[in-house]
Design a protein around this nucleic acid. Structure first.
Lengths: 127, 127
DNA sequence: GGCATAGGGGATAAAATTATCCCTATGCAA
DNA sequence: TTGCATAGGGATAATTTTATCCCCTATGCC
């Protein structure tokens, strides 16, 4: 999301959404914040597969895109809270729809995704 | 989508959807196919920013994930048609919701995305 | 001083995704 | 014979996205 070599396509709604929602952890972040997990450390615990650093970066982008707002409390140790903006809230039903489709088709998706075309499997000599 | 070094996360619906829908042109491909643009050359004309090769690759993945089906006619010059499967059809409302959110917020999104933090602008010497 | 907490971020490496280049094949038209 | 339209794909380069490493802030407490 820095200086791009390849120009952005911002032709249609899908392009625009992609720019703010593409990002491995972004939808999950929005979702968990919506569920009340507002602090960075909580989010990290909710998404242990992502490093703290990565979550920070993606949170920053969500903030830049005005989907979430950040409150920094002047206390020690530091305390930070993220909240959905109204704009971000309006995206929740969309994310909900995506997640629900995934949940509804969980088994099928899982097997499709894990099904790799059989090739060069050791032990399957053809000679 | 080949041999991955980093293991897949398939924890929740969002992860699963991501695996089949992440891909710069995939949602657009599904959408255009739904609208009746079924042949590769038509799709290419609809999405001129993507190369023919790239569309082929993504179409193949959509096919592998059973969201579309492919019909090859034994004619010359070659003729191919893609159609949404029932599974792919079920995804259309979701894509519709995403695109609609983007369309509804087009102006705001466009300015947010294009708004880059001012830094090192030439002509703004600070000394 | 050393440690714990809670949060941040620069630099760089690694991985994944996209794009580019160039080749295949067929029949018809100029 | 070259050119065009149709469709497909291997190999590799370029770009973008994620991940890793390591260090930083500030305060209170033992």
């Amino acid at each position: 999301m820095k200086n791009r070599k390849i120009p952005l396509n911002l032709n249609c709604g899908l392009d625009l959404v992609g720019e703010v929602l593409y990002g491995k952890w972004k939808m999950r972040l929005l979702w968990f914040i919506k569920q009340g997990h507002k602090r960075p450390s909580e989010l990290q615990r909710k998404i242990p597969d992502a490093s703290r650093r990565v979550l920070n970066v993606q949170l920053k982008e969500l903030e830049d895109h005005e989907l979430i707002s950040k409150v920094v409390y002047a206390v020690v140790p530091p305390k930070v809270e993220y909240n959905l903006t109204e704009f971000g809230e309006s995206l929740i039903p969309v994310i909900g729809a995506i997640g629900q489709w995934g949940d509804s088709n969980e088994e099928r998706l899982r097997s499709l995704i894990l099904a790799k075309p059989v090739l060069n499997v050791e032990g399957l000599d053809e000679g």
